[in-house]
Lab assay of single mutants.
Amino acid sequence: SIVTKIISIVQERQNMDDGAPVKTRDIADAAGLSIYQVRLYLEQLHDVGVLEKVNAGKGVPGLWRLL
């Protein structure tokens, strides 16, 4: 499923980069989806406690990390 793919992308990127959070844009590119589509999935995963959003604010790139 797309959700499983997104989780594995975040996991893979974090492992490659010493646990650093992953940008929404990088996840979207790797999943082959638009940034808006991916954001909806990321928000859902956040709501159920799978991911945390590391930063927030208007015009700030979203950074995500697995919990």
Results as ranks from 00 to 15, higher is better:
Val60His: 12
Glu52Met: 06
Lys23Leu: 06
Lys23Thr: 09
Glu12Lys: 10
Asp29Met: 12
Tyr41Ala: 05
Ile2Phe: 06
Gln44Leu: 14
Gly57Trp: 05
Glu52Ile: 07
Glu12Phe: 11
Ile7Ala: 03
Ala31Leu: 10
Val54Thr: 04
Ile27Phe: 02
Glu12Asp: 09
Gly49Ala: 02
Asp26Tyr: 10
Val3Trp: 15
Tyr41Lys: 02
Arg65Gly: 05
Ala30Met: 08
Thr24Lys: 02
Leu51Ser: 01
Pro61Cys: 15
Asp17Leu: 15
Leu45Trp: 01
Asp26Phe: 08
Gln37Phe: 12
Val48Thr: 09
Pro21Ile: 04
Gly49Trp: 02
Leu66Ser: 04
Leu42Lys: 00
Val54Ala: 04
Leu51Gln: 00
Leu66Cys: 07
Leu42Asp: 00
Ala28Asp: 05
Gly62Tyr: 15
Thr24Arg: 02
Tyr36Phe: 12
Arg25Met: 08
Met16Val: 07
Val38Gln: 00
Lys53Glu: 07
Ser8Pro: 00
Asp29Lys: 13
Val3Arg: 11
Ile9Pro: 00
Glu12Ala: 10
Asn55Ile: 07
Lys5Asn: 06
Val60Thr: 12
Thr24Met: 03
Glu12Tyr: 13
Ala28Ile: 02
Val54Asp: 02
Leu51Gly: 01
His46Thr: 11
Thr4Val: 11
Ile9Trp: 05
Arg13Met: 11
Ile27Asn: 00
Gln14His: 09
Ser8Thr: 10
Ala20Thr: 07
Asp29Cys: 08
Gly62Leu: 15
Gly59Met: 05
Arg65Glu: 05
Pro61His: 14
Val50Gln: 04
Val3Asp: 02
Val48Tyr: 11
Arg25Lys: 14
Gln11Met: 12
Ala28Tyr: 02
Val10Asp: 00
Arg65Thr: 08
Leu67His: 12
Ala56Lys: 09
Leu66Trp: 08
Leu66Arg: 01
Val54Tyr: 05
Gly32Asp: 15
Val22Arg: 01
Glu12Gln: 09
Pro21Cys: 08
Gln14Arg: 02
Ala30Gly: 07
Leu40Cys: 14
Val54Ile: 09
Lys23Ala: 13
Lys5Phe: 10
Trp64Cys: 06
Gly19Val: 03
Trp64Gly: 02
Tyr36Trp: 12
Asn15Ile: 12
Asn55Thr: 09
Glu52Gln: 07
Gly62Lys: 09
Leu40Tyr: 13
Gly19Gln: 06
Asn55Gln: 09
Ile6Phe: 01
Tyr41Gly: 03
Ala30Arg: 07
Arg13Gln: 07
Gln37Trp: 10
Leu40Asn: 07
Ala20Trp: 05
Pro21Lys: 03
Asp47Gln: 14
Ile2His: 05
Ile9Leu: 05
Arg13Ile: 12
Gln11Ile: 11
Tyr36Val: 12
Lys5Cys: 13
Asp18His: 14
Asp47Cys: 15
Ala20Leu: 08
Ser34Lys: 06
Gln37Lys: 10
Ile9Gln: 00
Glu52Ser: 06
Glu52Phe: 03
Leu66Tyr: 13
Gly32Val: 03
Gln14Glu: 05
Val10Phe: 15
Leu51Arg: 00
Ile6Gln: 00
Glu43Phe: 06
Thr24His: 01
Ile6Trp: 02
Gln44Met: 15
Gly19Leu: 04
Val3Tyr: 15
Ile2Ala: 04
Gln37Arg: 11
Gly32Trp: 04
Val50Ser: 02
Met16Ala: 13
Arg39Leu: 15
Lys58Tyr: 06
Glu52Asp: 05
Ile7Glu: 01
Glu43Cys: 09
Leu33Ile: 08
Trp64Pro: 15
Val38Ser: 03
Trp64Asp: 02
Gly59Ile: 03
Thr4Tyr: 13
Val10Ala: 02
Lys58His: 11
Glu52His: 04
Gly32Ser: 06
Thr4Asp: 12
Lys23Gly: 09
Asn55Gly: 10
Glu52Lys: 03
Lys5Trp: 09
Glu52Pro: 02
Pro21Leu: 07
His46Glu: 10
Gly49Ser: 02
Gly19Asp: 06
Ile35Met: 12
Tyr41Val: 13
Ser1Tyr: 09
Leu45His: 03
Asp17Val: 11
Gly59His: 06
Leu67Tyr: 11
Ser8Ala: 13
Glu52Thr: 05
Arg25Leu: 06
Thr24Ala: 04
Leu45Arg: 00
Gly32Ile: 03
Thr24Trp: 02
Asp47Arg: 15
Met16Trp: 07
Leu45Glu: 00
Ala30Tyr: 05
Asp26Pro: 01
Leu63Gly: 15
Val3Glu: 05
Val48Met: 15
Ala30Cys: 06
Trp64Ser: 01
Arg65Met: 08
Gly62Thr: 15
Val22Ala: 04
Val22Tyr: 01
Tyr41Thr: 04
Glu43His: 08
His46Met: 10
His46Phe: 09
Val10Thr: 01
Gly57Glu: 08
Ser8Asn: 12
Leu45Lys: 02
Leu67Phe: 09
Gly62Glu: 15
Asp47Thr: 13
Leu51Asn: 03
Gln44Thr: 08
Leu51Met: 11
Ala28Trp: 02
Arg39Trp: 11
Gly49Lys: 03
Ala31Asp: 01
Glu52Trp: 02
Arg13Cys: 09
Val48Asp: 13
Arg39Thr: 14
His46Tyr: 09
Trp64Val: 02
Glu43Ala: 06
Ile2Tyr: 06
Trp64Ile: 03
Val10Arg: 08
Met16Asn: 10
Arg39Cys: 13
Ile35Leu: 10
Gln11Asn: 08
Asp47Trp: 12
Gln11Cys: 13
His46Ser: 12
Val38Thr: 14
Ile27Lys: 00
Asp26Lys: 02
Asn15Thr: 10
Gly62Arg: 08
Val54His: 03
Ala30Thr: 05
Ala20Glu: 07
Leu51Val: 09
Val3Gln: 08
Val54Trp: 03
Gly49Ile: 15
Ala56Pro: 10
Lys5Thr: 09
Lys23Phe: 04
Ile35Glu: 07
Ile9Cys: 05
Val3Ile: 14
Ile35Thr: 06
Ile35Cys: 08
Gly62Ile: 15
Arg65Ser: 08
Arg39Val: 14
Ala56Thr: 11
Ala20Lys: 13
Ser8Gln: 13
Asp18Glu: 09
Pro21Ser: 07
Ser34Arg: 06
Gly57Ser: 07
Val54Leu: 05
Glu43Ile: 06
Val60Asp: 14
Val50Arg: 05
Ser34Tyr: 04
Ile27Gln: 15
Arg65Gln: 07
Gln44Trp: 15
Val22Pro: 02
His46Arg: 14
Gly57Pro: 07
Asn15Cys: 15
Asp18Gln: 11
Ala28Leu: 02
Val38Ile: 10
Ile35Pro: 04
Ala28Arg: 02
Trp64Phe: 01
Met16Lys: 13
Val3His: 10
Ile7Thr: 02
Ile9Gly: 01
Pro21Gln: 03
Asp47Phe: 12
Ala31Phe: 03
Asn55His: 10
Leu63Ser: 11
Glu43Asn: 10
Lys58Met: 09
Ser34His: 06
Ile7Gly: 00
Asp17Tyr: 15
Leu33Tyr: 03
Val48Gln: 14
Ala20Pro: 04
Val3Ser: 07
Met16Gly: 08
Val10Glu: 00
Ile35Gly: 03
Ile27Ala: 00
Asp26Ile: 06
Glu52Leu: 06
Val10Ile: 15
Asp47Met: 13
Ala30Glu: 08
Leu66His: 04
Lys53Trp: 09
Pro21Arg: 03
Val10Gln: 01
Gly49Glu: 02
Leu42Arg: 00
Leu66Gln: 02
